[in-house]
């Protein structure tokens, strides 16, 4: 794993590229919301599948809705969801991973059991099942995706923390009388930080992918919400009449995931 995705000087060239792509997308999402103020749900059936023009920069979809407004909405939705999911998963997974490695015994076994149980089902199947309980709920999707994502943090952090806890550096500090918070701050966090940050970037990509995937199989958020996967499946029938419209959500998903993958650096 590439160390120190952390602060700016440590970024490699491809990580810079990833960061630049993401910054551009975020900027677009923010500016669209701020300046354009279009309505992503207002239909105009007399102007459906219009090509990009001075009026409608990104054209319109099959209900004549502004694609610019819908893309802005969809990007904000994806970015927001990935931010929430990653923050939750990182906090939960890192915390529990450190706890498990540190306490050992019954705590660790219980947490391992929980993680293995969740891993027994492929993540997306679990998200689908949970999404089925409350269709179209953003909250449930957020909880379901976070529930899948935290396990990766838990496993990696637990494994790395175990190594640090057995290491002479921590043993030496412990023998010298230092408390747990100090041991965490000086020894454990520096060791797991690069992985946590790399996983965060990958996790953000995965959250976006998961959202788009369940949108694509039509069981995630419900129309008329503008969501990238849902937009792909809605615009699919018009690939011939309006290829530019179909290309927009596909390109957005591609750039989002590419950006996060590049930012994450090289995985193990």
């Amino acid at each position: 794993m590439k160390p120190f995705l952390a602060w700016i000087p440590g970024l490699s060239r491809s990580q810079w590229l990833g960061a630049a792509i993401l910054m551009a997308l975020i900027l677009f999402a923010l500016l669209e919301g701020w300046l354009h103020q279009g309505d992503s749900t207002r239909q105009n059936l007399s102007n459906y599948l219009a090509a990009p023009s001075a009026q409608e920069w990104f054209g319109t979809d099959h209900f004549g809705r502004s694609m610019l407004a819908r893309m802005g909405d969809a990007l904000r939705l994806s970015l927001m969801l990935s931010l929430f999911c990653v923050a939750t998963a990182a906090l939960l997974g890192t915390g529990l991973g450190v706890c498990a490695a540190w306490m050992g015994g019954i705590t660790e076994r219980l947490l391992n059991f929980l993680a293995n149980t969740l891993l027994a089902l492929p993540g997306l199947v679990l998200v689908l099942l949970l999404a089925a309980i409350a269709p179209g709920s953003f909250l449930v999707l957020y909880l379901a995706i976070s529930l899948v994502l935290w396990i990766e943090y838990y496993r990696v952090v637990r494994a790395q923390t175990q190594v640090v806890i057995r290491s002479p550096q921590l043993e030496a500090s412990r023998q010298l009388g230092f408390g747990r918070w100090y041991l965490f701050r000086r020894h454990i966090w520096p060791a797991i930080r690069p992985s946590v940050l790399t996983l965060a970037a990958f996790g953000a990509g995965n959250a976006i992918l998961a959202l788009a995937s369940i949108g694509f199989v039509y069981v995630g958020l419900q129309p008329p919400v503008a969501e990238l996967g849902l937009m792909v499946v809605e615009l699919l029938p018009y690939y011939n009449d309006a290829p530019w419209a179909l290309a927009q959500p596909i390109l957005a998903i591609f750039l989002l995931i590419l950006g996060f993958n590049l930012l994450a650096g090289k995985a193990k």
């Binding site: 002479p168 550096q169 030496a172 020894h187 520096p190």
Partner: peptide
Amino acid sequence: PAAFAPGV
């Protein structure tokens, strides 16, 4: 080196 916290 293994007995000291790194980077400090």
